[in-house]
């Protein structure tokens, strides 16, 4: 059925969401060299201020349940915003705004817990909330609590996502799939114990180390949130007219995420991460990038996982060690399956 109504899948990252944004929200623009606007479809926007760039980003956060193993919606809001700024090269966020939309009847204690998480995450990321807003909606008009955030910071050098070419290498800053599988397990009450933990974390310090170590050899940087590593790589492959080959054996996946993926029939490559970035570097910079990442606790498990190729533009291919297959581009929220 193709009607004009928005479906859940339009919000799940991947091609449907990109189509929607291109169709409705982003019309034209892109002709001012001193501005990066929404038409670029990057993690944030930027305007040139003197010899620097002022980077900004906006983000809305809905997660069920709001408290999940390894984090909660407050930590998610701060980290998501900080990470979007960092992915553009703004690794010292000057400040955030947070809007809280809360459902009538919601518990004050839960709001306190969320605020405590916001404060703690800000401290970790070295930033602060500068302004906020609170709205209450009627019972059933919103599901519990929704946060909306914005952030801003300066970047000396903007990291764009259109500099990737054949021969470049793909690095992931750590284990894949933890957040999405932890939330899925909690949401559907799948009883997978507490070994599965969200990876939600601010990546700005890690990115600063990386930028310092590899400089201009860093040619792509994206946090692998909705749609996971797969969505990010498809987006990069699409924007750069290149293909990507992933080495299945090299993918860092925690035992818990691997086991959960097998049990639920869900590929860790297509579920969200909230503390991991896909890094594209020139081939000569791989070792320096990995060394810089691994020196930081958040990049301890960083690994080189693939290569950019000229063929198969827009596609991501997985070399399984047995043969090759296409990596599915995520379409809609993955659901646990039994078949």
């Amino acid at each position: 059925m193709s009607d004009d109504r928005i479906k859940m899948a339009h919000g799940a990252g991947g091609s449907l969401m990109r189509d929607l944004i291109g169709d409705v929200f982003v019309r034209g623009g892109g002709d001012d060299p001193d501005v990066v606007g929404p038409e670029a479809m990057e993690d944030g926007g930027a305007v040139r201020v003197g010899d620097r760039w002022l980077v900004t980003t906006a983000d809305a956060h809905v997660v069920a349940p709001a408290f999940f193993p390894g984090g909660d919606i407050g930590r998610l809001a701060v980290c998501g915003t900080v990470n979007d700024l960092a992915m553009m090269g703004a690794t010292a966020p000057l400040g955030l705004t947070i809007t809280v939309v809360v459902e009538e009847g919601y518990g004050r204690d839960d709001l306190r817990r969320i605020q405590a998480s916001i404060d703690a995450a800000c401290a970790e990321a070295g930033t602060r909330v500068l302004a906020g807003d609170t709205k209450v909606m009627g019972k059933g008009e919103v599901d519990g609590v929704v946060l909306s955030s914005a952030g801003f910071g300066f970047a000396d050098r903007l990291v764009r996502d259109r500099g990737m070419r054949a021969g470049d290498r793909v690095i992931i800053t750590g284990s894949i799939g933890d957040h999405g599988l932890a939330v899925m397990s909690a949401r559907h009450d799948l009883g997978l114990g507490d070994q599965l933990q969200s990876d939600v974390a601010p990546l700005n310090t890690l990115v600063a180390r990386l930028m310092e170590a590899v400089g201009d050899d860093l040619v792509g940087l994206k946090d692998a949130t909705r749609g996971g590593v797969s969505a990010v790589l498809h987006e990069l492959a699409d924007k750069n007219g290149a293909g990507v080959v992933l080495d299945d054996v090299a993918l860092p996946i925690s035992d818990a995420a691997r086991a959960a993926g097998e049990l639920l029939g869900v590929d860790p490559l297509v579920v969200a991460n909230e503390g991991k970035a896909v890094v594209i570097v020139r081939p000569g910079a791989v070792e320096a990038a990995l060394a810089a990442l691994r020196a930081d606790p958040l990049g301890r498990d960083a690994a080189a996982i693939g290569e950019v190729i000229a063929d198969h533009a827009g596609r991501v291919i997985v070399d399984t060690g047995f043969g090759r297959r296409l990596l599915a581009e995520p379409r809609g929220e993955p659901l646990p399956r039994i078949c």
Partner: peptide, 8 residues
């Protein structure tokens, strides 16, 4: 134990 997660 499924090599990473424990389930009933």
């Amino acid at each position: 134990d499924f090599w990473g997660v424990t389930r009933q």
